[in-house]
């Protein structure tokens, strides 16, 4: 899966607003809604929250990957948001989440969706990389950090 094809500057937010899980998710979702590729915001939101209810997607070390499967989209959509101060996302390790990567994937179509999430999370394994992402000055810089990964 080509990260470059999926992400562009419209899908990145360097200063994501929100003080709770609900707000963060809604604000991230709105980034995707603005692209016009989400047919039904309410349905998509429900899918995201439903997944979050099963287990927090705040994985570790300040990274969260809220995601959901929904028919409100026809192909994989993704966006990235940074909250410099961090937000309590009920992460497994209790650390406030700062880097958010959201994906929505169609529930009926197959595709490398989980693989995409895994690929992008792998970028974030190194602490140095996470620091760089959080402190990125421009959207282009952020994207190039994610795309230009050691292969």
């Amino acid at each position: 899966m080509n990260l470059k094809k999926i992400l562009n500057t419209n899908l990145v937010e360097l200063d994501l607003k929100g003080n709770s899980k609900q707000e963060i998710i809604e604000n991230l979702l709105d980034i995707l809604v603005k692209t016009g590729n989400v047919k039904d915001r309410a349905v998509a939101l429900e899918a995201l929250l439903e997944r979050e209810a099963k287990m927090s997607t705040g994985i570790q070390q300040g990274v969260a990957i809220p995601h959901g499967k929904t028919d409100a989209v026809t192909e994989l959509l993704a966006c990235v948001g940074i909250v410099k101060g961090g937000v309590d996302f009920k992460a497994l390790d209790g650390i406030p989440s700062k880097i958010f990567i959201m994906t929505l994937s169609p529930s009926t179509r197959s595709g490398p969706h989980v693989q995409f999430l895994a690929d992008i999370s792998r970028v974030l394994i190194s602490e140095g990389m996470r620091e760089k992402l959080i402190n990125a000055e421009t959207k282009d810089e952020l994207i190039s950090l994610i795309v230009k990964r050691p292969s």
């Binding site: 997944r51 099963k54 287990m55 989980v114 693989q115 999430l117 895994a118 690929d119 999370s121 792998r122």
Partner: peptide, 16 residues
């Protein structure tokens, strides 16, 4: 090892 994250995530999703 480099695919382990993917496999774990996929297993997690199925278990959920």
């Amino acid at each position: 090892p480099e695919n382990e994250a993917f496999v774990r995530l996929l297993m997690l999703e199925e278990v959920l």
